[in-house]
Design a protein around this nucleic acid. Structure first.
Lengths: 242, 242
DNA sequence: CGCATGATTGAGTCTTTTCAATCGATGTGG
DNA sequence: CCACATCGATTGAAAAGACTCAATCATGCG
């Protein structure tokens, strides 16, 4: 079982001023709730939950109660086909919302698993009543739909090099938005998980990392990435012909 | 320009009893709004709009005002990359909602184009105020997120044959849900559009149609499809190894 | 310290793409 | 009403990209 600790209620956990260790507002005001008047959240208490590396926040099929705002850590979403094949459908960092897949059918349709020790705010769906919050939630979901468009584009039209370049640039940008270095970061996921997300084999991901390194675009040392040439990576993004 | 006709307001267009020519409730109560107490919609007037084959309902970048419920016809969504590559991200038939991509950023991010003469209900987003409707909208969006998961799965883990089989079975099921034949239907899109959606070349799509026909799974005559062996198609869906 | 896991790299194979030619259907204009 | 032009579909042959299998190496966790 997921022995994820249920931390006692942390009043106003989502309000910026109460979030210790957060460098930016977005980290506290998750993703799309960004832009919300924090006052709107003031009267809600959000329980927090810790999820240990490797543990699931929830699994496909689990009853849907709440959505979750990632406070810290790093998680992945994945879906499993009947025959066992699975696919990573997203990576989630601080400030992002997960669990939206459960609203439609009353059950979650994906697994969400921590790639490192993480903490989330539990936001009971039933308590999201104020119209403004509803609108905000719709914005979050809409942005998620747009993000999915991007992933479909990636999976449907890009060659392997482009996918990896897009992946690195996307991560870089998201780290930047959270106040971390955009040029140097640690991958929290394995090559296999990257490959699953990008629709590539883990070997192909590894080879392309090596190729990018040979070309002087990045430095790769296992999970440690340093981006040396953003422009070069962006160029690799638009090279349908090698 | 899109000379799409703006039909005068059609009071209660979305209410089943007022929808002429609809065989099922879903066709009138679009997709996820299904399940809503129709009374909730009673005080809203929905303008309808006709979109001629080949015309756009809206384009990427257009200001977001409204979402649209497809009343009749068949449309596709597509997104375009800077370098010109484009990808079809979805096909939409009667009863489905399009335009949700615009909520997050205030502008649409995809083109939606009619593949045959179509008609939609214009649902001004600002008028969706009742809490129950908001919840319904969230359900629609959540289901759309789940659908996207399926497409990612398809693009990320399936081989060409499986993709085409999944595509045909999905269409078949959707036609069935709308009261049409699930075993015989007309494709409204070209091989190129199917290929774009499935991340395959149009030639590969054509070849696989031919192969399925040789195997007795389907009959293909240009845009006319007859499914002869559903079980066989489903089997093809789970054949990672040829 | 050692084992298990993750990453890298090579060789060969296979799927899918690309290029190209042909065929058929559709629809437009004379 | 027919001829022609255009668009879409099919099919073949060759090429390329990515995968699988496999061996090796490094790492980091227990």
């Amino acid at each position: 079982m997921n022995a994820a600790a249920q931390v006692p209620k942390a009043k106003l956990a989502i309000v910026p001023s109460r979030c210790a260790g957060c460098k930016m507002r977005e980290v506290c005001l998750p993703g799309g709730l960004d832009g919300t008047d924090p006052a709107l959240l003031d009267d809600l208490d959000y329980t927090r939950r810790k999820v240990k590396r490797g543990d699931a926040l929830f699994r496909a099929g689990a009853e849907f109660d709440s959505i979750y705002a990632v406070r810290s850590g790093f998680l992945k979403s994945s879906v499993v086909l009947e025959d066992g094949r699975d696919q990573v459908t997203g990576f989630h960092m601080a400030g992002e919302i997960v669990g939206l897949d459960g609203i439609g059918g009353g059950n979650h349709t994906a697994d969400v698993t921590a790639l490192e020790d993480s903490e989330v705010c539990i936001i009971p769906y039933a308590r999201l009543e104020q119209p403004h919050l509803q609108r905000q939630l719709q914005k979050v979901m809409s942005r998620e739909l747009v993000r999915d468009q991007g992933v479909m584009m990636l999976l449907g039209t890009m060659r392997a090099e482009e996918r990896v370049a897009a992946f690195l640039l996307n991560l870089s940008q998201r780290f930047l938005a959270r106040g971390f270095s955009s040029s140097e970061f640690h991958l929290r996921m394995t090559r296999e998980e990257i490959g699953s997300y990008l629709g590539l084999s883990l070997e192909t991901v590894s080879r392309i990392f090596s190729r990018f390194q040979d070309e002087g675009l990045v430095t790769v040392n296992l999970k440690h990435i340093r981006i040396l040439d953003v422009a070069g990576l962006k160029a690799a993004l638009s090279q349908p012909n090698l």
